[in-house]
């Protein structure tokens, strides 16, 4: 399973070079066209703001990261459990699956105030917002994975007298692991988005003043450079969570799943 060094280097280098090019063009254009900094600050100004307000960014990242992680973990656990429950009975699936789709279509911005009413402003409401936004892909992918078990193996389990529980634990769930990982990948990005939205509405307390709040306050002060820095930090948080999920997925699947081989 040795990786060819050049392609790995390329995988790191290529996006970095692209980023450098984009930043250079951005910097050059904002300067050449004298774009007002409150509309579009040059990258150098964003960097300066990030350095100047490093403390606020760091504590914001911590708050947002914590809420996103809690929401994401709730999605992972409840999403997978819900899917297993739905997958264990056609009747349950028929009865409840349509309503899980509702979770995906619900406009989170519109129900966030409701969350404040139920949970009070703060970490809980924000984390629940992250959960609502990120749980559906976990349910849908897990369910699809549970449903896509090799029918030959199903027959084999039946032939050798496996009960429902043994079939679930030894066949269906392992078969679904690649799909679950896919669901978690999608959920990781969504959890951060759900957190920021949640903070806009419910983040006005000490334990939840994250990057969303920093975005709002820099917007009110027309500190567009800091706004950019906050948005980029939020994106980096999403990337970090995504990377962590990828890592866990790769560890789980490396020995047997084609998606993790020949990379």
């Amino acid at each position: 399973m040795a990786q060819p060094a050049p392609s790995r280097l390329g995988a790191v280098l290529a996006p970095l070079l692209a980023l450098a090019a984009i930043l250079a063009v951005w910097e050059g254009l904002t300067r050449a066209l004298a774009v007002p900094a409150y509309l579009l600050p040059p990258p150098s100004a964003v960097l300066a703001a990030a350095a100047h307000d490093a403390g606020a960014l760091a504590s914001g990242a911590l708050m947002t990261g914590r809420a996103a992680l809690i929401g994401f973990l709730m999605s992972a656990v409840f999403g997978a459990l819900a899917a297993i429950a739905l997958g264990s009975s056609r009747l349950l699936e028929k009865a409840f699956y349509p309503y899980t789709i509702f979770l995906q279509t619900v406009p989170i911005v519109a129900i966030a105030p409701l969350l404040v009413l139920w949970f009070g402003p703060g970490l809980r409401a924000v984390a629940v917002s992250a959960f609502i936004v990120s749980v559906f892909p976990v349910i849908a992918n897990t369910l699809a994975g549970l449903r896509s078990v090799d029918p030959g193996l199903r027959d084999l389990f039946r032939l050798y007298g496996a009960g429902r529980f043994a079939t679930l634990v030894k066949l269906s769930i392992p078969s679904a692991v690649p799909s679950i990982v896919t669901g978690l990948r999608v959920a990781s990005g969504l959890a951060v988005i759900g957190t920021i939205v949640g903070e806009f509405v419910a983040g006005f307390s000490e334990d939840s003043a994250g990057l969303g709040i920093l975005v709002l306050s820099s917007y009110r002060q027309l500190r567009t450079d800091l706004l950019f820095a906050a948005v980029l930090t939020a994106a980096a948080l999403g990337l970090a969570l995504f990377g962590a999920v990828n890592l866990v997925g790769a560890l789980l699947l490396r020995r047997w799943h084609p998606s993790e081989q020949n990379r």
Binding site: D150, G152, L153, L156, F157, Y160, G161, A162, A166, K170, L171, P174, V177, R255, W256, H257
Partner: peptide
């Protein structure tokens, strides 16, 4: 063959006994 890709051969072959 319908083997379980997440199990090494030994545990694939042992499956019928495991279920019993």
């Amino acid at each position: 063959p319908h083997l379980m890709p997440w199990r090494r051969n030994l545990d694939n072959v042992a499956l019928p006994l495991e279920l019993a």
